[in-house]
Amino acid sequence: MTTATKTSGKARNRRMARMPADSGGDNEQAGTKKTAAGIAKTGTKTSATTKKSSKTELVLGMLRRAEGATLDQMVEATGWLPHTTRAALTGLKKKGHMVTSEKLDGVRTYRVAAFSNA
């Protein structure tokens, strides 16, 4: 016994999960674009000085303090796991920051010595 599947004569258009920003729309006005969030943007640029701070910048700020920062302090501030925090320290080293560490009274403290643009 064979079963027949029901198919419609007309195939439906597939929708992409994320539509391209420059796709033409009926309600789109000249000079404005719709973002993924649905907020209309004008053609003007925003200033680059309003950059959102990241967790990496938070860690870097902690390392620049005179007392430096311990791994536990950085984990608590960022919400990362310890291995992720150590990976962020490695990333800072790769970006040219001189991250130093020293162990005092059984607690390792990390600091940024200087920034070299090598």
Results as ranks from 00 to 15, higher is better:
19 M>V: 10
29 Q>D: 01
86 R>V: 09
3 T>G: 13
42 T>H: 15
114 A>T: 12
29 Q>P: 02
71 L>C: 07
20 P>Q: 03
61 G>P: 03
16 M>A: 13
25 G>E: 03
73 Q>H: 03
105 D>L: 01
54 S>N: 08
46 T>V: 03
27 N>H: 14
35 T>R: 15
43 G>K: 13
106 G>S: 01
15 R>A: 08
88 A>P: 00
5 T>P: 03
6 K>S: 09
106 G>T: 01
23 S>V: 08
93 K>C: 06
82 P>N: 04
54 S>M: 02
112 V>Q: 04
81 L>E: 12
25 G>P: 00
108 R>V: 07
40 A>Q: 13
33 K>E: 05
94 K>W: 04
72 D>K: 15
81 L>V: 09
102 E>S: 10
105 D>H: 14
52 K>G: 05
28 E>R: 14
3 T>Y: 11
42 T>E: 06
6 K>W: 08
48 A>Q: 11
52 K>E: 04
36 A>M: 02
84 T>G: 09
62 M>S: 07
85 T>H: 04
16 M>I: 05
79 G>V: 04
12 R>W: 04
117 N>Q: 11
16 M>S: 13
60 L>I: 10
25 G>A: 01
43 G>Y: 13
42 T>K: 13
2 T>P: 12
14 R>P: 04
28 E>F: 10
7 T>Y: 12
56 T>A: 12
19 M>T: 13
47 S>D: 06
98 M>P: 04
51 K>R: 12
37 A>L: 05
70 T>W: 03
53 S>V: 06
32 T>S: 05
79 G>L: 00
95 K>S: 14
106 G>C: 00
80 W>Q: 12
42 T>W: 12
22 D>V: 02
100 T>L: 01
73 Q>T: 07
24 G>W: 11
80 W>Y: 15
72 D>W: 02
110 Y>S: 08
11 A>S: 15
4 A>I: 07
113 A>V: 06
71 L>K: 15
100 T>D: 09
38 G>C: 02
77 A>S: 08
30 A>M: 08
45 K>W: 03
6 K>M: 02
78 T>E: 01
89 L>M: 10
112 V>E: 02
84 T>Y: 12
81 L>H: 15
38 G>N: 11
1 M>L: 06
74 M>L: 04
33 K>V: 10
14 R>K: 14
115 F>M: 07
55 K>I: 00
48 A>C: 01
5 T>F: 09
27 N>P: 00
97 H>A: 11
89 L>A: 03
109 T>R: 11
36 A>G: 08
87 A>T: 13
35 T>F: 10
3 T>S: 07
69 A>S: 14
97 H>D: 07
95 K>F: 03
67 E>L: 01
59 V>E: 01
36 A>P: 08
84 T>W: 06
83 H>A: 06
34 K>D: 00
17 A>C: 07
46 T>D: 13
70 T>K: 04
70 T>Y: 06
67 E>W: 03
52 K>N: 08
43 G>A: 11
25 G>D: 01
58 L>R: 13
38 G>W: 10
91 G>K: 15
96 G>P: 05
39 I>Q: 15
48 A>N: 12
12 R>D: 02
112 V>W: 02
106 G>Y: 02
105 D>W: 03
34 K>W: 08
57 E>V: 01
3 T>N: 15
17 A>Y: 12
76 E>S: 09
115 F>R: 13
33 K>S: 09
91 G>V: 04
17 A>K: 14
